[in-house]
Write a protein that binds this DNA or RNA. Structure first.
Lengths: 192, 192
DNA sequence: CTCGATTGTCTAGCAGTGCTAGGATCAGGT
DNA sequence: ACCTGATCCTAGCACTGCTAGACAATCGAG
């Protein structure tokens, strides 16, 4: 019994190591640099070991995404909890979202840009993803306005943030006026 | 002289063929399926011929993007020209944008999702891209509101549309309430 | 304590990718 | 008819994700 448990523990440790290493590598050099060979080399095992933990590269991306979703939700809640006014909360939320996207490229890509084999906006959506959406909705439903479904409002607001984040990062928008854009977006969308 | 001109014409024809074929293939099976081998096979030349027209796959994507930008600008102008009211124009614009994104996956990806080696939001940005942004701004500057820079407003509105387009396409948003989302976005952002 | 079975891991390899060097082939001008 | 130069293709490089099969280490039973 004991030996089995020990092995399971070791397996779990190695699995975390794989995810952490993949994330680190992606954050340093982008997801393109995360090849199964490089990843295997970094964790000091051979390639096939990866496939005893994950079906393939996609699942590794998915694992990073789930881990990131939890952190992102926490970051947003931390940012909003410091504010009293509903509108100030939304501004803080937007800043926190864009900050996270700007500082955690790899995680953000895994979540929203790449195919991690996860399902979204469904019943079988993994809990961390639902919770991240919930973190958005907590602050946003306060400013949705009368007669507007909070979920729908959250979707629209989220999409706007996502657009700003991705277009900025891809060089389609210059980062100079980022703050002004956020203010404009919050001013117009949020009904205080 | 004449033979040189003929050769130049043939070159131009083949270049257009490459771009059209790449786009067609991407539209049918996604950009992942557009490999240099498959593309070469479809145009009935060997791989290296591609590299006598383009530096690499990136430039081919870029060529499709430029071609698509012109079409997208035309589609948006066509949609807005039929409306009189500024707000109705913006609604039509938003619908046209999202329609284009939904029906021309390959082109939209080449424009805004993939790396086509193009520069955006700069002086040396290719004309078609500037013009597509201009097409957006034409209708949007009317509803930017007092004291708000039309360019900045256009960026924010565009980012929101882009977010809706990409999140919907990636399965992050269910397409059911697309129309309601558009109405909400226009209602809040556009100041009539 | 030894022996077979099981588990775990690695080496080697597949089919595919973008891209390129070098040789063959064909057309043009003389 | 010849030489020259442009044009194109074959073959190959180093890489990708992924897997089959050999090998070794470990475990439980006798």
């Amino acid at each position: 019994m004991s030996t089995q448990e020990r092995k399971q523990r070791e397996q779990a440790v190695r699995e975390r190591l794989i995810v952490a290493t993949a994330r680190e590598l992606a954050e340093q050099q982008g997801w393109d640099a995360v090849t199964t060979r490089r990843l295997a080399e970094r964790i000091e095992y051979s390639q096939p070991v990866l496939y005893s933990h994950f079906r393939g590269k996609r699942e590794i991306i998915g694992a990073v995404a789930l881990q990131g979703a939890t952190e992102m939700a926490a970051a947003m809640r931390a940012a909003t909890s410091a504010e009293d006014d509903p509108r100030a909360r939304v501004t803080a939320l937007a800043r926190a979202y864009l900050d996270f996207a700007a500082h955690h490229h790899a995680v953000y890509d895994a979540l929203f840009q790449l195919d991690g084999g996860l399902t979204y906006a469904q019943e079988d959506t993994p809990e961390p993803l639902k919770d991240a959406f919930a973190a958005l909705m907590e602050s946003l439903s306060e400013v949705a306005g009368d007669g507007v479904d909070p979920g729908l409002f959250t979707e629209v607001f989220w999409a706007s943030l996502h657009g700003l984040a991705t277009l900025t990062r891809a060089g389609r928008l210059l980062p100079e006026h980022a703050e002004v854009r956020v203010r404009l977006l919050v001013d117009r969308l949020a009904i205080a």
